[in-house]
């Protein structure tokens, strides 16, 4: 029995996400199944719909496998937001493993309708600015900044900027037309949007410090499609999913960041030093506290979730 998986995502085929993670994953399952499991890759939302609709698509079988950001659909996956709070993530590999473990306890209900293959995060979020560089907290006032998720939007608003929410594929157009002054995305996204050609300035936070933000991703398979696989093919999927895969993707994204950063060499890059980050972190702490309260208000265990997230990240960072 041969099975073809329709793999759908929003970045182009040339993106690092595809070349360093999705296509290699497809090659691996093809090899380990003696070509009985194959992918048909549909990048750039070719099958239709919008990036926020990818989750519904895999749940309902419009696609068999998708890669997407739970954060594109605000309110739907509150538990994962713990990882999108400011200054949580240091290593994408460790944090991705932690996210997988965390999701096993806190996110089962939210993802019960799909078969999650991996949960992961991207590397340090970076500011990419067309004409107004960010050198410090004072520069945020009046800036229109694109952000990916609910919490990043809130964080930027608290820092004084005007957040504009849009999925990555719209960022290039928005930057080129001056709809936004800049965007926050990791370096990994740079070539997928041609950010290096659309902006002049980049701002990183001290790389030795936790990232000022990250986003969570889910790589998920349609549940019925998985259940219908013969036992040996299920095994191939099982062997290529879970905590290990999550960690691998996190690692691949770190590599992608390094590659993407090379492309920006001709632009100016500012680094916010650790000492200057104190007031940023104060705002971040406020946001975290607000979030915990909000979750508690919804009857979710906000305090517990944040604690567990931090503990798991620390545990995996320590290499356990």
């Amino acid at each position: 029995q041969e099975v073809t998986l329709k793999v759908h995502f929003f970045l182009p085929a040339t993106s690092y996400a595809n070349t360093l993670f999705i296509t290699p994953w497809c090659d691996r399952i093809a090899k380990e199944s003696a070509n009985r499991l194959k992918c048909q890759i549909y990048p750039s939302m070719q099958l239709g719909g919008t990036p926020p609709q990818l989750f519904e698509q895999v749940r309902d079988g419009v696609a068999d496998v998708v890669w997407t950001l739970p954060g594109y659909t605000a309110g739907r996956f509150p538990s994962l937001e713990a990882f999108e709070l400011p200054f949580m993530m240091q290593s994408p590999e460790a944090t991705s493993k932690a996210l997988w473990d965390y999701a096993q306890t806190h996110s089962q209900a939210e993802f019960k309708d799909v078969k999650p293959l991996a949960f992961h995060v991207h590397g340090d979020g970076v500011f990419h600015m067309t004409s107004k560089p960010i050198k410090g907290l004072a520069d945020f006032k009046g800036l229109k900044l694109r952000a990916p998720t609910r919490l990043t939007n809130k964080f930027l608003a608290m820092l004084g900027a005007t957040p504009v929410s849009m999925p990555v594929p719209q960022v290039g157009d928005a930057l080129s037309k001056g709809v936004i002054d800049g965007a926050v995305v990791p370096y990994e996204v740079v070539p997928s949007v041609k950010i290096q050609e659309l902006v002049k300035f980049h701002t990183e936070t001290d790389p030795a410090q936790p990232a000022f933000y990250t986003s969570t991703f889910v790589f998920a398979m349609n549940k019925a499609k998985y259940e219908a696989l013969p036992a040996d093919l299920k095994k191939v999927i099982d062997a290529n999913s879970g905590q290990a895969l999550s960690g691998q993707i996190g690692k691949a994204f770190l590599q992608a960041d390094a590659e993407g950063k090379k492309l920006t060499a001709r632009n100016t890059t500012n680094v916010i030093a650790a000492a200057e980050l104190a007031p940023w972190k104060a705002v971040g702490d406020k946001l975290s506290a607000d979030w915990v309260k909000e979750m508690d208000g919804k009857g979710l265990k906000g305090t517990q979730m944040l604690q567990d997230a931090k503990a798991l990240i620390a545990k995996h960072a320590a290499g356990k």
Partner: peptide
Amino acid sequence: AAQERSMLMD
């Protein structure tokens, strides 16, 4: 059912 909300205005 999924309680999806808009990003900024909730």
